[in-house]
């Protein structure tokens, strides 16, 4: 009985119709009153999505974004009591949205935004100490399994997601033309509470992906070289040490 009422209430607040709620509740003006709850729930979840994906919102415009966010909210009620975790599947909705097929890069831009939020909220951990790379023997280095810092994310895309993200920041008034034929990879790291987005090469992206999958440094470097024969391991590792990509 109670479960039925709760289910009917959930359907009423998440859906467009009042469903079966009227079977459980008799009240004057029920539809209009439940609409207040629906508006509050869907509106506040929509605002959470808007706050998490500001660049996506700027690209498609407020009105269309609101409609997308409401549709997402209706189909994806929060599963955790933690708003920073709400919206992980929103990029997938963008990828499937037929009306967005002319913006094929949009889902990847949204993934970049989501990765940025995840990085910001990830756990603290000490960054890899450079000395480890000096003190470890060559054989052990070859097999060394570096670990990504909890705040490190890698987003790879066939589109120029870093450039699109940059030119759609609030302070940019005149968005320049972007060459959509460029593929871009971004490594996100966090130092001292700030998330940094770093455009990186295909080889370096392959290195980070291999390390994320648990490959030893030797095999990871080989995968980076297979992706990009000009890959420079030394400068890539230097940049990662500075950025704090890995943890101790």
């Amino acid at each position: 009985m109670l479960a039925g009422l709760q289910r009917a209430f959930q359907d009423a607040v998440l859906g467009e119709a009042d469903g079966t709620l009227a079977e459980h509740v008799t009240a004057p003006g029920l539809a209009a009153r439940i609409a207040v709850y629906r508006n509050t729930v869907q509106g506040s979840l929509g605002e959470v999505i808007a706050a998490a994906f500001p660049v996506t919102r700027r690209i498609v415009g407020d009105a269309f974004f609101s409609a997308l966010a409401r549709r997402f909210a209706a189909g994806h009620p929060p599963r955790l009591p933690q708003l920073s975790a709400y919206g992980a599947d929103f990029p997938d909705l963008l990828a499937e949205e037929a009306a967005l097929h002319r913006l094929p890069y949009l889902a990847d831009v949204a993934r970049l935004e989501w990765a940025r939020g995840e990085s910001y909220f990830a756990a603290e951990a000490p960054a890899l100490t450079p000395g480890v790379l000096i003190e470890t023997s060559p054989e052990a280095l070859d097999a060394l399994k570096l670990r990504l810092h909890p705040a490190t994310r890698l987003v790879r895309s066939p589109y120029p997601i870093h450039r699109i993200w940059q030119v759609n920041q609030p302070e940019v008034e005149d968005v320049p033309a972007v060459d959509m034929s460029v593929a871009e990879n971004v490594v996100l790291t966090r130092r001292e509470g700030r998330v940094a987005l770093r455009l990186t090469s295909a080889g370096d992206a392959a290195l980070v992906a291999a390390i994320a999958e648990g490959e030893g440094l030797g095999d990871a470097a080989a995968r980076a070289l297979a992706e990009d024969a000009a890959f420079d391991l030394e400068s890539a590792l230097r940049d990662h040490l500075i950025a704090g990509t890995f943890r101790n």
Binding site: A127, L133, S137, A221, A222, L225, A236
Partner: peptide, 26 residues
Amino acid sequence: MRTLNLHTLAAMAAGAALAVADPAAA
């Protein structure tokens, strides 16, 4: 697949570590 020999790998790793000039910066 092109691979790095062990000494090249070690030299590059050490080079990267040494290039992070000020250990305090890390």
